[in-house]
């Protein structure tokens, strides 16, 4: 299970490697313009763990995901990936085993690329101009199959809908068979049926392949029945709930403000799928 008490032990960089721990964050602080975006973040994610991160806009969710792949340098603390401290010199080697799907993307892609080209970009071998795509054809099809997009292998990426593009981008993150998958609002462009399929796929990857997943999402109700734990983030981690453990009202109010109203989530909810009530 993911834990947030790693700071109590304060291990030095890279020494926290339990064999089944994929990621450990120690006392992470990230600042922008002299203001802390993230502060005192401690987390660890073992193999096969599905961690959801929720929080209001501007809570630092995307900053946290970006820091984990080295796009944002910590001002304090450190990040261990697969037992090694993430540093500029080993970043590329460690990130080979990390799949990443960020939130920002072009609304109207301009580049003429086929779906298979996009997925191929997820492989490190893609950068070698001598490596032909046909060598990885099967692997690309496998990744597309996971997101139900194998029929679009040779389609022009620009002609796809927003949801289909999102599924192709997810296939690009999966094609490298990552040990750890980082997803920033992956369900944003998907309808409720596709969202549910996505969560089920992620759950299956965690259970069957031991992949660790960290997913930022705004809809805790939708993810709560799939994840192993949920971290409530607003600059700090205010609460870390295991599956089935309720998040106290005061945590919600601390994150979203006093005006928030909490409603029971049951079978009568409009727009929810049956799995969300299990």
């Amino acid at each position: 299970m993911a834990v947030d008490d790693a700071a109590q032990h304060r291990p030095t960089c890279g020494t926290s490697a339990l064999s089944d721990t994929l990621l450990t964050i120690h006392d992470l602080r990230v600042e922008a313009g002299g203001r802390a975006i993230l502060d005192g973040i401690n987390l660890s994610v073992p193999k096969g763990h599905f961690l959801g991160i929720v929080g209001p806009n501007g809570a630092g969710k995307s900053t946290l995901i970006n820091a984990l792949v080295g796009l944002q340098r910590p001002d304090h603390g450190h990040i261990d990936l697969f037992g090694q401290c993430l540093k500029p010199f080993n970043r590329r080697q460690l990130l080979r085993h990390v799949g990443f799907l960020h939130q920002l993307h072009e609304q109207q892609p301009r580049l003429p690329v086929r779906v298979c080209d996009v997925v191929m970009m997820g492989l490190g071998a893609h950068l070698n101009p001598l490596v032909p795509m046909r060598r990885y054809r099967q692997r690309i099809i496998e990744a597309l199959r996971l997101t139900d997009m194998e029929h679009a292998y040779a389609h022009d990426y620009r002609t796809l809908s927003g949801g289909q593009r999102q599924r192709v981008r997810l296939a690009r993150a999966l094609v490298r068979r990552p040990k750890l998958l980082l997803l920033d609002e992956p369900s944003a462009a998907l309808d409720s049926k596709r969202q549910e399929k996505l969560y089920l796929l992620l759950r299956r990857l965690c259970d069957e392949q031991g992949m660790g997943v960290i997913m930022v999402d705004h809809d805790i109700a939708a993810i709560s029945s799939h994840v192993d734990s949920v971290a409530c983030l607003n600059r700090r981690i205010h609460f870390h709930a295991s599956r089935g453990e309720p998040i106290p009202d005061h945590v919600w109010q601390r994150m979203y403000g006093e005006h928030i109203q909490l409603m029971a989530h049951d079978a009568a909810c409009i727009g929810c799928t049956p799995a969300e009530h299990s």
């Binding site: 796009l71 590329r92 950068l127």
Partner: peptide
Amino acid sequence: VTAAAGGL
């Protein structure tokens, strides 16, 4: 962003 996140 993804290219940079891949270590490029």
